[in-house]
Nucleic acid binder design. Structure first.
Lengths: 163, 163
DNA sequence: TTATTCGTTCAGTCGAAATTGAACGATCTG
DNA sequence: CAGATCGTTCAATTTCGACTGAACGAATAA
């Protein structure tokens, strides 16, 4: 049994859940993080499940996700063998790990993909599958993408520092 | 009847679709844009539907979305009363409008929400619903979010220029 | 006028992902 | 040792939203 959550925290949890949902992440992940972010003391897994009225299974998977992103950390509470969690105060660590674990691989992949596409385009030009005009047009557009994406790959790490 | 698409364009369409999907946008939107981006000449709505093998309904909603974002534009082809579409070559226009039409409102909303939450927290403190410790802790975390989000709102427009 | 063509809208379907409840292994307790 | 507690896993379910087909109004053509 624990004191009910203040409206401030309830609404924050709601917002965090919605934010996650609109970004394509499970709502429960946002709720767990929202709860922990405004929690002065660490919470155990069943506390989280109770307070959010969601299943322990969701909390289990959610916390694992958040731990992997370093958005929360697992802390040990003497005299209790349950797992406690607390939110990481500084969000930069989280953003860094989310970037390097999620965005960075995607960018690398798309970068390679663009190169492959340009090569394909050339070979298709040689085989006469695409005409000269179409080839020139596509090449220009694809190289434009390569330029943009090159700049982005330089800018994003910088952004992470400025934030 | 129209010439089949070269493998370059097919694969590009696939990539564009996947990218949209991972960002939480409909795959069809990405496909439409991908097709148009590598299209030397404008395409009509049924052309798009045929080449992508998706329904006209999807294309209709997709193009409307993309037009709103200024990612594509509607062009008029003399002698044909159908709507033709072409991709906007320079992506900066698109990013600007996507930012001001999608991200910016969200940011403004969340900013307001944070202020409201801070006010709620104060009143709940006055009513004794939250103790002093909890109040201080939550206030610190919330103001931290306000700081970050303030910096973000300044940085994003800058990023749009640098890209 | 009637018959087509074009694009949009809307209710219904479908699939993918989130969430759940139950079962399980592991670890502590009495 | 038996009993209880804790966290994870997995199959089943629910939920959510993209996608579709059909119906519709508007605009053109015959």
């Amino acid at each position: 049994m624990s004191a009910p959550l203040a409206r401030t925290r309830l609404e924050f949890i709601e917002v965090a859940g919605r934010v996650c949902q609109t970004v394509g992440l499970p709502r429960s992940v946002g709720q767990v993080y929202g709860l922990l972010y405004l929690s002065p003391s660490p919470l155990a897994l069943d506390d989280i499940a109770d307070r959010l009225s969601i299943s322990k299974a969701s909390v289990s998977t959610g916390t694992r996700q958040l731990v992997a992103w370093q958005a929360i950390r697992q802390v040990w509470v003497p005299g209790d063998r349950r797992d406690y969690f607390e939110a990481v105060g500084d969000l930069r660590e989280m953003m860094r790990s989310v970037y390097s674990g999620f965005f960075s691989p995607k960018y690398a992949k798309s970068e390679r993909k663009l190169e492959v596409l340009l090569a394909t385009l050339e070979s298709e030009r040689k085989e006469g599958i695409v005409g000269r005009d179409e080839h020139d047009f596509c090449k220009e557009r694809l190289t434009h993408l390569v330029r943009i994406q090159g700049r982005a790959s330089k800018l994003l790490p910088l952004l992470e520092k400025l934030l």
